[in-house]
Amino acid sequence: MNPPLSPLSTIQDVAAAIARTAGPQLAAGVPPARRGLYLATGDAGVDVAVAFWAAALEASPRFANPADFPWTLANAPAGLVARALQIQGPCHTLVGGADALAAALAHADGDLARGRVREALVVACDLAHPLRGSFLVLNETRRARPAPAAPASATAALLACGGQPVARSSAAP
């Protein structure tokens, strides 16, 4: 459905791929405010923060690229996905491995259970994991199941829950 991402893809590429792939699977007719986004990541922002600061030191802090700065923040991928899919309800970014994914699933399940959202997009967005990105769309009839505790990354944990991969690196086996 999507072109594979190269091993050199950025976290921006991963988030964009998630948005492209998940968008068509969202139900029609759900108001934007009744959709929630629940993203787990282990490394969003890290690479960009290091590169941003290296560039600032190389020239001068006065000439750092302002366009890169928002991507130093862990929640930038969620912001991109929310904008692309017009998700205007709760927007969470949980940082960590499988524990973060479990918390994201719990948030989604809780918001669905009490009717705060009608549809929940649960996303794993890891730059370092070979598969990098995956997602689950949940609604009132398809609720969350617990994330397995063993996988180290959110992406691996979401795939173990039945999530769909969106960004298979060419470096992956």
Partner: peptide, 21 residues
């Protein structure tokens, strides 16, 4: 938080080898 222990990212940007995980 926003980006975590940002001082570590600054040290890495300055060339220090760190495990940022």
């Amino acid at each position: 938080s926003t980006m975590g222990e940002s001082g570590s990212f600054e040290r890495a940007g300055a060339g220090e080898r760190l495990d940022l995980g």
